[in-house]
Design a protein around this nucleic acid. Structure first.
Length: 514
RNA sequence: UCCUUGAUAGCUCAGCUGGUUAGAGCAAUUGACUGUUAAUCAAUAGGUCGUUGGUUCGAGCCCAACUCAGGGAGCCA
């Protein structure tokens, strides 16, 4: 055994394909290990990728083989070896190891090489982040963050951030986290948008990028208590220019992910068809039209929302039946005598999977009728619920933009449609595949009088908005912007089941650690 | 806050209508095997059935309350 080598610059697994037939040094952790007599296969991960390293008596001396046999999951290693092309392997290559040294041992790593429940994994989030799926998601998240900056910086926006401590509930709707600021009551920011408006009047085009807090005790797959939001704001901009900006911005980000994250998308099994079709123009519709579609009064390319839901309901019922039949068949197979251990394990594994499927399907069967109900009985004038968004977006293969909302249900600062004052010039972008709202924005009200009235009507403390009204007194211009929920975008791009997988350490109702 | 589903070994789950000593796979430990892809095979060890109370000759299973978690509603990016 030698001292671990920290001096030689290590190679990144990411770029190993450029080092075929060369000797390289890798530093990383054991992601998996399999062994036979006189041969050990170590799947090494170094943060940039995964690579199989083979230690055998042929390529390495016995002392190193013994070390390789002794390593356990997540042992930290320095490995020196020869890069060999091998089509069968992940990344098309593997390492013939000449030298292996342990840097840090790892006994009884809690996350096993099998499926785990979500609660257990969340308790182990600090370790779960090491697994390949989480690795891929975080790499995609990183690409999204970087391309967001790239897009806005290239387009001449200046990043200027809003404060996290605020003195008031700026929109007066959501529940805020209360805290204390030198003896004064303060809240954690739920949006930097009002500040964004002030900064846009100083810079022309700005964007904020920071954490945002919502204290609703919400327990759904699309909600987090703490999340990251990007809020661009543009002076001299109306709602239609705003929608153009949203569209070209999302195109840019999705294109970058498709281009730079092929491995990652593949490793999480993301079908990229919808991402590709999302590079086309987004359908734009008014609230009125969207309501007609939800209620089934207007079809989208011949498809009726209610009918398609009912079809889904009957196909889900059939699916449940076939799952139950398959479970029964497998259980009968299991009951036969003289099965090999491997066969038993195989059938049991399938049954566990099928039962999971069955639970999900039953969940859908409970939910879909409620959605049909809520779509049919949608009351004109109210906001869309999660199910209404699902009903609408499943008819499209790309994000949908809904604008001109009844002003009563939208924030006070949104501009009225000058041609029809019942509507406010807000826009929501709804992601396809059931993911719902990823962007909310709109053109801002410039009429100081109307704004004051709205602030009164919403029972908001006028004294907190003096500075905001100043923006309308000194060189007021048409302006617009939007807020993008980073995690919701990541969740949709990766097609995750739950938004909590899209952030390294999620904070939500009932979850403050790790 | 409301509706709904659940809590059994370190993990994932069985456990039928209440009935002897609560089971399996994975992980762990020991051994076998020179090309494995969640490797395989053999053996060992591993449990106060979420908590409290109740019904019963007898409770993992029935009842009540509570705690925690999944999903949904509301609210929201």
């Amino acid at each position: 055994m030698s001292a671990p080598d920290f001096q030689t610059p290590a190679h990144s697994i990411q770029f190993l394909s450029q080092c075929i037939d060369q000797t390289v040094v890798l530093r990383g952790w054991v992601a998996n290990k399999r062994e036979g007599k006189g041969i050990v296969f170590i799947l090494l991960r170094d943060g940039t990728g995964f690579c199989q390293c083979v230690v055998s008596s042929g390529s390495s001396n016995d002392a190193f083989l013994e070390i390789a046999q002794s390593v356990s999951l997540e042992t930290a290693l320095v490995i020196k070896g020869l890069v060999r092309a091998d089509e069968k392997q992940m990344g098309g290559l593997e390492i013939q190891v000449n030298q292996i040294d342990i840097v840090g041992e790892s006994d009884n790593y809690p996350i096993a090489k099998k499926e785990h429940g979500i609660e257990f994994l969340m308790d182990q989030r600090h370790l779960w982040l090491r697994s390949s799926r989480q690795w891929a998601i975080m790499r995609i998240r990183n690409t999204i963050i970087f391309s967001i900056h790239e897009y806005f910086q290239q387009a001449g926006f200046v990043q200027m951030d809003a404060p996290v401590f605020t003195s008031n509930a700026c929109e007066g709707t959501s529940t805020l986290f209360e805290t204390e600021f030198y003896g004064e009551q303060a809240f954690l920011s739920q949006s930097g948008q009002l500040y964004g408006e002030a900064m846009a009047m100083a810079m022309g085009k700005i964007y904020t990028f920071g954490p945002t807090f919502r204290a609703e005790k919400s327990k759904t797959r699309r909600h987090l208590s703490e999340f990251w939001m990007i809020e661009p704001e543009m002076a001299f901009c109306d709602i239609f220019q705003n929608m153009n900006c949203i569209e070209s911005f999302l195109h840019f980000v999705v294109k970058k992910v498709l281009l730079n994250c092929k491995t990652e998308l593949e490793s999480i099994g993301r079908d990229t068809k919808i991402l590709e079709s999302s590079l086309g123009g987004f359908p734009r519709m008014t609230y009125d039209q969207a309501v007609r579609i939800i209620k089934g009064e207007e079809n989208v390319e011949g498809i009726n929302s209610i009918e398609s839901l009912q079809n889904e309901l009957s196909s889900t019922t059939l699916k449940l039946q076939s799952i139950q039949e398959e479970i029964a068949v497998r259980e009968r197979n299991l009951a036969q005598p003289g099965l090999k251990k491997g066969e038993i394990a195989f059938h049991q594994g399938k049954i566990v999977q099928l039962k999971q499927d069955k639970n999900d399907t039953e969940e859908n069967l409970r939910n879909i009728p409620q959605w049909i109900d809520s779509a049919k009985n949608f009351t004109y004038g109210s906001d869309f619920g999660g199910s209404d968004e699902t009903v609408l977006t499943r008819l499209f293969d790309r994000p949908v933009m809904v604008y001109d909302w009844p002003h009563e249900i939208k924030a006070f600062y949104l501009k009225r449609n000058p041609e029809d004052s019942r509507f406010a010039r807000g826009v929501d972008v709804l992601a396809p595949e059931g993911y719902g709202e990823i962007v909310g924005g709109g053109e801002r009200e410039t009429d100081a009088q109307l704004l004051s009235e709205k602030i009164h009507a919403h029972n908001l403390p006028m004294e907190s908005f003096g500075w905001y009204l100043d923006l309308r007194r000194y060189g007021s211009v048409p302006h617009a912007g939007f807020g993008l929920g980073l995690e919701r975008l990541v969740t949709w791009v990766c097609k995750l089941k739950h938004v909590r997988e899209s952030i390294p350490f999620p904070r939500m109702y009932g979850r403050l650690t790790p």
